[in-house]
């Protein structure tokens, strides 16, 4: 990936662009020079993998809905599908790493929102439970 100081990126030591002519030789777009996108065959294979993962998700849902491993397994499978789509179909695996950083930031904030709201609910319920227990023991 193009990083500051990397001669192939057309950047100076502190990450600044030095000239448009230099840019034109490297990567004015978003792709690394020299890399290749997956072929159509790879895209179809990836679609097959995504389909298999979806079938597994639905299958384990029907196998045992009471199993302790069900929710973690579903979350892992969904995460794998998520990463495959953004990596290969959205080309994040092959594009400039800064695009991945931008998206990761948004994803991280959304996860933080989720965890924060869930934790808030847990503590809120714990306090409610405490109040109930206290009133019951009096």
């Amino acid at each position: 990936m193009s990083r500051p100081g990397d001669a192939s990126s057309g950047r100076g030591p502190r990450g600044e662009r030095t000239s448009v002519a230099h840019q034109a030789q490297s990567l004015p777009g978003t792709h690394e020079a020299g890399h290749e996108h997956p072929t159509e065959k790879t895209y179809i294979q990836i679609a097959g993998i995504l389909t298999i993962l979806t079938v597994i998700e639905v299958a384990i849902y029907y196998i045992d809905q009471e199993a302790a491993w069900l929710v973690p397994a579903l979350l892992v499978l969904a995460s794998v599908k998520f990463l495959i789509v953004i990596g290969f179909y959205m080309h994040l695996k092959f594009d400039d790493s800064r695009l991945a950083q931008i998206f990761s930031f948004g994803l991280g904030v959304s996860l933080a929102i989720y965890i924060g709201m869930y934790a808030l609910m847990h503590f809120h319920r714990a306090l409610e439970l405490t109040a109930l227990m206290t009133s019951a023991t009096r």
């Binding site: 057309g10 034109a24 004015p28 890399h35 400039d96």
Partner: peptide, 18 residues
């Protein structure tokens, strides 16, 4: 993007290279 032209050719150069 002469070596890797994926349709980015219609864009002026940017300081980020993206």
């Amino acid at each position: 993007d002469t070596g890797h032209d994926h349709g980015h050719a219609d864009h002026p150069p940017t300081s980020t290279g993206i």
